[in-house]
């Protein structure tokens, strides 16, 4: 399959596909981080995770409209405002959902799965009624357009770079939150022994709500970042939910590093395969491999062996 290409071309192909893979990787990481917090730390399956992401995207879309209509001179920085707002709005919705629904279902994970699926249908319909069934896109600020030529055959788009930087930044932020903040300590304590955590004075109810909110907020930021590289429709969230869950499970639930490693391997495999096979076959092959490996090693890539 390589015979038709020269050495230089092959390098360029791998570099470009590798880069496309890196963008996909960033997208996966952004999507999966929120889920890794919610699923990994709380054991809750949130099937509406994709819809929380889309909410972040719609918030960004609204903010970009407001800026271009009323604050055109600040348009180049609207994205940062939008991202913060996306975090707050989706986070708040997440906390509300936790209060209204999730907290009643902690002992019934399979039921949570069905209930959040119901929530995802409702959100989809609300998006469709409010924003219309068609996809909407945002205007990217000028500084994010175009691409950087690295060599004469390899070019990297700036918006892609931006999403990558964002993914790295948010990963670091979550890592710090998780392992350096009081909240992170409480979350991990609850994950290991809920009753004991309650007994030593951690407000488990509030921590759960906050954790779910932060997980959803991160999803919102992911959605916000999406608008830089693609358009948004009411059902777009559903397209990603399987990939996202596989990324988290493949990485080993509870391990942030695992999530990132698995996002990296899945995205690279898929984008490199995509060049040689059709897009759908590349995806089938990648997902099948992941499922196959999960059948052989259900605990995922990174997991501790614990005394029962």
């Amino acid at each position: 399959m390589f015979a038709d290409y020269s050495m230089g071309e092959l390098t360029a192909i791998f570099a470009m596909q590798g880069f496309a893979g890196l963008i996909l990787f960033s997208v996966f990481v952004l999507m999966a981080l929120g889920l890794a917090i919610i699923f990994g730390q709380m054991g809750v399956i949130n099937m509406a995770h994709g819809e929380f992401m889309i909410l972040g995207a719609y918030v960004t879309y609204l903010v970009s409209n407001v800026f271009s209509d009323y604050l055109p001179f600040l348009f180049s920085i609207y994205f940062f405002v939008a991202m913060a707002l996306a975090f707050v709005v989706t986070g708040a919705l997440g906390m509300f959902v936790e209060w209204a629904m999730i907290r009643h279902l902690y002992k019934r994970p399979l039921d949570t799965l069905l209930a959040t699926w119901g929530l995802s249908l409702i959100l989809q319909q609300i998006y469709r009624s409010v924003f219309g069934a068609r996809e909407v896109g945002v205007t990217i600020p000028e500084w994010m357009m175009g691409s950087l030529p690295l060599t004469d055959m390899i070019e990297v788009p700036i918006n892609g770079m931006f999403v990558m930087v964002l993914a790295v930044g948010i990963s670091i932020a979550i890592y710090v939150l998780m392992f350096r903040s009081t909240w992170g300590k409480q979350v991990r304590a609850i994950n290991q022994n809920r009753i004991m955590a309650g007994a030593v004075g951690i407000n488990t109810e509030w921590t759960d709500r906050l954790t779910f909110g932060i997980g959803c907020g991160v999803a919102g930021v992911a959605g916000s970042a999406f608008t830089m590289i693609g358009s948004t429709g009411p059902t777009a969230g559903q397209l990603y939910i399987v990939d996202t869950f596989l990324v988290v499970v493949f990485g080993g639930a509870g391990s942030l590093l695992g999530t990132i490693a698995s996002a990296f391997s899945i995205s690279q495999a898929q984008s490199i395969l995509e060049f040689f096979l059709s897009g759908s076959m590349a995806k089938v092959l990648t997902l099948l491999t992941v499922v196959g490996i999960l059948m052989l090693r259900p605990q995922g890539l990174f997991a501790l062996k614990l005394r029962k």
């Binding site: 069905l114 209930a115 249908l121 959100l123 319909q125 609300i126």
Partner: peptide, 14 residues
């Protein structure tokens, strides 16, 4: 319908 179906999922579980 979609709203109803979504609500049905939630109601039947909760």
């Amino acid at each position: 319908w979609l709203l109803g179906l979504g609500a049905l999922f939630i109601a039947v579980v909760m």
